[in-house]
Amino acid sequence: MPSSRNLLAKTIPLLIAVPIFGSLGNVLLGKGMRGMGKIPDLSFPSLAAYLLKILSSGWIWLGIGSLLIFFISYMLVLSWADYSYVMPVTAVGYVLAPLLAHIFLGEVVPGKRWAGAVFIFLGVAVVGRTPPSTTRQV
C-alpha cells in the first residue's frame, strides 16, 4: 500500500527528531543553569537580575531552540499519527541516554538500567508493528 509507505516515510524522521531534540534541549538547559549559581534571594530586583543572566546564556538559548524543534516535531507527527503510537515509540530516548553516557562519557551504567533499556527497546519494536494511525481518513 503506497499510502502506508508514505505515512511511514514522514512519520519516522519526526519520531527520531522528537527524542533527540527533547533530551538535547534538557541537557543544554541543564548545562546553562549549572553555570548560574544559586538564586541570591527572592526579592524582585535580584530575581529580575537572575532572569537576565539566564537569558544572556548561549546554552539556554540553544536549549530553548532545541525544545522548540522538539515540540514542533511532536505537534506535526501528532497531526496524523496516534498518540498511543507516538508516546511509547519516542520513549526510545530513554535507551539512547544510557547508551550515549556509556559510549561517550565512559559512565558505568547499572544493570537495572540496561534491563530497562532492553524492555523499552522490545516495547518500541512491538508498538512499531502496529499501524501509526488508526483514526486517519485517507
Partner: peptide, 12 residues
C-alpha cells in the same frame, strides 16, 4: 508494547 515500555521506563 506499551506495558513493556512503561516497565522499562520505570526500571531505567
Amino acid at each position: 508494547g506499551l506495558l513493556l515500555v512503561a516497565a522499562g521506563v520505570a526500571l531505567v
